[in-house]
Structures are given as structure tokens and as C-alpha cells.
Amino acid sequence: MGRVDRSMQWREALFGIETAGRGTDAGRWIYNPYLLLVFRLVLAAVFIYAAFLKIGKPVSFAEEIKMYGILDAGPTLYIVAIVLPWIELLCGLSFISGFFMRGAALIFIVLNAVFLVFVSIRTGYIMNGEGIAFLEVYFDCGCGFGSTYAWKKILEDFLFLLFSGILFAAPVYRFVLVPARAGR
């Protein structure tokens, strides 16, 4: 295997940059590098900010997760409360730098999909419990941004899921921090 091949493999593993195999998708407007950069920066800003609000406050975050009625006080709840903010932070940094970005996008897809399900279930509980309409459901999702309408949170989460999915499927990433060795 030549030096160039090894360099490309290394780049692909580290940055998710693929120079072959998905070239047919490269012309799609949704994969415009500037648009992808916007998606990356939006996701990074939101999740890094949310992570800093939760890091070092595992008890508080655990209480917010508990309100979904899915996890009771116990090891699983507290491990999630300790670990999740750091994973959000690392994924956010990955979106800025380009390191392991496709993996970070995959994590965001899973996180946002799970969160979307949790928020929908909780919204359903509140609608049934309080007998109010979908658009009137107002609660603190535990994301670190305070209380908001459920429909806004669901829409927002759907957009994040979409951004993550597009980033994951993008054939090529640009504007990433490529070390000198990879560029040779």
C-alpha cells in the first residue's frame, strides 16, 4: 500500500473525509460545504452550551431525566447524568474540528432520536394527565434551556436530527482541521 493510500485511509478514519465511493452524491445541494458548515456550527453551539450547563451537576440533571418517568433513581440514571453531558461536549468539539465527525454525527442521530421519543412520550403523558391540547403542553425538557412549549422542542429536535443525518450522509467534509501529515 502506497503512502498516498495510507494517508487517505488515515484521513478517512480521523475526519470521515471520503474521496471515493460516494462521489455520485457530491453534487446534491444539501451537501453544499457551506451549508454543512452551518449545520455543524449550529449543532456544536447548541450542544456545547447545553453540555456546560449540565457538566458537574449530575444530581440536577438526573432529576430532570427522572421527570420523563423512564428511569428511576439508580445507577443507570446517575451514569447517564454523569456521562451524557461530556459526550455532548465531545461531539460538539468534533463538529468544530472535524475529528471523528462522522462518528459524532452517528451519536447525535441516536441521541436526538431517543430524545425525540422521550419528549413525545412525556408530551403524551402531560396531554392525557392534564387534559390539554398538544400546542399548550409546556414543560422543562431537562436540556438545560429552561421551560418551553413541547411542539417547539419536538420541532427543534427534529431539525437537529435532520442536520445530524445530513452530516452523517455527506460524502465529503470541508473546513476541517487537517494536520500537515494528512495533506501530504
Partner: peptide, 12 residues
């Protein structure tokens, strides 16, 4: 590769 990257980020 994506799955390996995701596990690496989660592990870190």
C-alpha cells in the same frame, strides 16, 4: 468506520 468513531467518542 463511523461506528468505531462513535464508540471511540463515547468511550473517551
Amino acid at each position: 468506520t463511523s461506528i468505531i468513531q462513535a464508540f471511540a467518542v463515547a468511550l473517551l
